[in-house]
Amino acid sequence: MRPSRRTPVLAAFATFVFAWLLTRTSWLEAALKWAFPTEVSWLHPRADLVSLTVEHLAIVAISSGLTVLVGVPLGIWVTRSSGRDFRQLVAASVDLGQTFPPVAVLALAMPVLGFGFKPTIVALFLYGMFPVVSSTIAGLDSVPTSTLEAAKGMGMSPMQVLFRVELPLASRIIMSGIRTSVVINIGTATIGATIGTGGLGVPIIGGLATRNMAYVVEGALPAAVLAVLIDVLLGQVEHGFAVPLQEADSA
């Protein structure tokens, strides 16, 4: 989506409406009753949607935070001369991290880390790594060699080249990778409920277990809206990184 000047206002408004709707569970129940008249119960017994959403966001924030904290430096490292030899290996590993189903990661991590929070964080952390690392590499690769040569030729130290030239120029592409990663994690985080992590996966998994479609929708709907909202908000941040270049284009 191409952000316009009105987008931030619209996004803030949509966020507010979404938060308010979460507190109106009776409305949701009425809607679900209408949609699934054959069920006997329409809201999951543990369904305080506000606290489920907060839990969900906490899971995503922690796992994505870790992904960025590890993924961006990893991407930077493999584009430096010291880490260049590991570039293929790292690219292949994060690729594998994404092809490996998160459910399988949960199953494998559980014996070690037990039930609850930790295995879910590990699974999401690995799963979200690919877009972050690959966009960091792509962003740094996109910096023109003549610009790098000039930066070095002017007498910038490697750190100065990185922070004053490469990262500012790569920031937009890196940010788009982070955004993709976060949005994927919002959806994927629902599987955490299978091992008791909480979040919006609770009604979904509960609904699947009891064949109650109303429960499934009760969790899936807010999760989907959340994903769209976060996508738009992070798009705004991404857009903010490119301000000087954008101005240059339009002038």
Partner: peptide, 22 residues
């Protein structure tokens, strides 16, 4: 290397201006 380069003004063949700076 860095100090040497700061004392040598260098105009490179492909110009290489920094696109994010005015």
């Amino acid at each position: 290397a860095e100090e040497l380069r700061r004392s040598l003004g260098y105009a490179i063949q492909s110009v290489g201006l920094f696109p994010h700076l005015d």
